[in-house]
């Protein structure tokens, strides 16, 4: 983790958007706010950036107060003075300015002369391999190009933190790869927060994940902890896993109804409260007598070249050819390989 990253401590309450959440993140490079549409991700980013003033709460970036509704002395710091830049999913670029002047905008705002700001903007564009676009108007850019320019503009303003709302959504695959590179680079130098609905965006990129459910925090911690050992059903669903809750036993996890799911104990003692988060990729559908868990087909989803078979307890990703005969209501058996690892609800 780089030295320039800052801690975030916030309580953001915006009742008209159903948001009331407390976020506390130690100095982390790249933070992912993970949640479905309407979970309050954009509202949290707007409150941190200062484009929206919450009804209640406070926020601090390291020691500096961004807003504190309860403290008239601290009050609300203007967005312009926070030095936190925001890139949204909308068209962020100013249509009347060229790409170069868009990138120079934040530099100019710091009091740099027009010529110097343009020279610096050229360098930023060149570093992002976008110098060819310098004289273009935003209306002539593709969605991916516009997103990259907006991120470069946000970085050129030399912020203390960079906030990105769904940076990979709505652009083509090539552009998403370029944006991912930009975001990764940003996270190495400053505190960077991305809001996303897709856990895949957090894996390999984020150091820290905060899961938002209907405006409040469902889980938070290191990416590894939250995505592979989630403690709430909701966080597990966001991470693409099925959460089982029970008691550690000699050979695995005993569920409330007495079913035993084979699992590694991983340091827990029999009798301890335990969780296991099982990825459907690690579950196979087998002959009814051979499996670890017997179940009944409850739902079948098709995802590209895979088919997800949901039982009442578990789910398995199977080859569509193998699952072609399965119907809702069929008895099935799930086999777990590799064996899932138990963990404590307190992680």
């Amino acid at each position: 983790m780089s030295a320039a990253t800052m801690s975030i401590d916030a309580h953001i309450a915006v009742p008209e958007r159903g948001v009331d959440c407390r976020i506390s993140i130690p100095g982390a490079g790249l933070i992912a706010l993970l949640g479905p549409n309407g979970s309050g991700k954009s509202t949290v980013l707007a409150a941190l950036a200062g484009t929206l003033t919450p009804a209640r709460g406070h926020a601090r970036l390291d020691q500096s107060v961004l807003f504190d509704v309860g403290d008239p002395g601290a009050g609300t710091i203007d967005a312009a003075a926070r030095r936190i830049t925001l890139v949204t999913q909308k068209d962020d670029l100013f249509p009347s300015l060229t790409v170069l002047d868009n990138v120079a905008f934040g530099i100019r705002a710091r009091g740099v002369s027009r010529a110097d700001a343009r020279a610096a903007a050229h360098q930023h564009l060149a570093a992002g391999d976008l110098e060819d676009l310098a004289d273009r108007r935003p209306a002539t850019l593709s969605g991916g190009q516009a997103r990259r320019v907006a991120i470069i503009r946000a970085l050129a303003a030399e912020p203390r933190a960079l906030l990105l709302d769904e940076p990979f959504a709505g652009i083509d695959v090539e552009a998403a790869i370029a944006v991912r590179g930009l975001v990764r680079q940003a996270g190495r130098t400053i505190t960077t927060v991305i809001a996303t609905h897709d856990a895949a965006d957090a894996w390999g990129l984020a150091d820290h994940v905060v899961v938002l459910d209907s405006g409040s925090v469902a889980d938070a911690g290191t990416t590894q902890a939250v995505l592979s050992q989630p403690v709430s059903r909701f966080a597990a669903a966001m991470a693409g896993r099925v959460l089982l809750r029970g008691t550690a036993a000699a050979t695995g996890l005993t569920l409330d109804d007495g079913t035993v799911v084979a699992a590694e104990l991983c340091g827990l003692s029999p009798g301890d409260a335990a969780l296991v988060a099982i990825s459907p990729r690690h579950v196979q559908v087998t002959e009814a007598v051979n499996g670890d868990v017997t179940d009944v087909v409850a739902r079948i989803e098709h995802h590209g070249d895979a088919m997800r078979v949901w039982g009442h307890l578990l789910a398995a990703d199977v080859d569509p050819e193998q699952g072609v005969d399965l119907r809702v209501g069929d008895p099935i058996s799930f086999a777990l390989a590799p064996r899932p690892e138990l963990y404590s609800p307190t992680r």
């Binding site: 484009t51 967005a79 925001l86 905008f105 946000a154």
Partner: peptide, 8 residues
């Protein structure tokens, strides 16, 4: 709004 986050 975006312009204000850029420090303007």
């Amino acid at each position: 709004s975006i312009a204000s986050t850029l420090g303007a």
